Simulated scan of single mutants.
Amino acid sequence: MALSCGGKCMKVFLVVINFLFMLLGLGILIPGILMLADVKLVNDEVLPLLQQLGFGGLNVGDLAKGLSVTLIIFGTFVLIVSLFGCCGAFCQQRICLVVYAALVLVFFLAKLIVVILWFVMNDKIQTWMKDQLISQLQNNYKNNDLTTHEISTAWNYMFMSLSCCGVNAVTGTTNDFDNSVWIGSAGTKNIPTFCCTGVTASNYATYSDASCTDNVVSNYYKKGCYDATYDLLSTYSTVFIAVGICILLVELVAFIGAIVIIKQGGEDGKSLSGAAKMV
C-alpha cells in the first residue's frame, strides 16, 4: 500500500526532523567535549578537591569527568540513531522504523525525567554544593603553597584558575578563612597569597603584597569560588537544558512520524499496525 499524501508528508518531515536531530546530537557531543577539555574546572590539580565533595557514594570530581564522557558517548549514539531513522523513513524499512520508534520513545521518557529532576533538585544541589565547599575550606585548607598538602594545593589552583577567593565573596579581613585550619599559621595574612591577582605557580613563593593578603583592600579576587564554579557550570547547564528541551520536542514529533509511516505501509505494501503495537 502506497503512502497517503499525509504519510508522504510525514516521511519527508521525519527525514528533516532526523537531520535536525543529528544537529542536536552534536549539541550534546560538542559541550561534552568542551567540558572534558576545560582545564579550569576538571584538571589534575583541582580534581583532588572536587573528589572530596561527596554526594551519597559519589563525588563531584568523578561525576564531572564521568558526565563529560557520558555526554560524548550519548551524543554519538544520538547521531547513529538519527541516521537509522533517516534510512528507515526514506526507504520505508519497517523493522528500522519500529526499532527507531521504540528507541525514540525510551529516549523521550528518559530525558523528560532528567529535565524534571534538574528543575526540582536545582536549589537543593546549590545549597549542598556551598555547604560542602565551606566544610572543605575550613577543615582541609592548611597550606599556602603548592607542594605540602594535596587538598590545599587543589584550593590554591582553584583560586588562580577561576580567579576567585574563599567560598563566599571576600569583602575584607573577615571572611571564610577565619574558621579555617590555615588561619592559625597564617601570621599577619587574612587571605592566602593565591587569592591575589597576578600570582602564578611560578612566582607565589616570592610574591608579597600586604594590601592583598594582610589588609584585604586591593589586588585580590573579590568573587567567591562558589559563584565562580556555579557560573562556570551554568555556562554548560544552560546549553544542556536548552538542547534537551529541543530534543524532547523533536523526539515527540519523530515518534509520531515513525508510527504514521509504520501504520500506512512498509516495503512490501502491507499494513504495519501489528508492528506498531510493538512500540
Rank of each mutant, 00 (worst) to 15 (best):
G7M: 00
G7D: 00
K11D: 07
V12M: 11
F13E: 08
N18V: 00
M22Q: 06
L24V: 12
L24S: 11
I28G: 00
L29H: 06
I30R: 02
I30K: 02
P31F: 05
I33V: 08
L34A: 08
N43K: 01
D44P: 11
L49R: 11
L49I: 02
G66F: 12
F74N: 04
F77V: 13
V78Y: 10
I80P: 00
S82K: 09
S82D: 09
I95H: 06
C96S: 10
C96K: 00
F107I: 11
K111E: 15
V114G: 00
V114E: 01
V114D: 07
V115F: 08
I116R: 03
W118I: 13
M121E: 15
M121P: 10
K124T: 12
D131P: 01
L133F: 09
S135A: 14
Q136D: 06
L137A: 03
Q138A: 03
N139D: 08
N140S: 12
N143R: 09
N144G: 01
T148Y: 01
I151R: 07
W155T: 01
C164V: 01
G166N: 10
T174R: 08
N175Q: 07
F177N: 08
V181R: 12
A186M: 02
A186L: 05
G187C: 01
T188S: 10
I191Y: 04
T193E: 02
G198D: 08
A201T: 15
C212D: 01
N215Q: 13
C225R: 09
D231R: 09
S237Q: 10
S237F: 13
T238R: 14
I245T: 03
E251C: 09
V253E: 01
V253D: 06
A254N: 02
I261L: 13
I261Q: 04
Q264H: 07
G265I: 12
S271L: 08
S273G: 13
A275W: 14
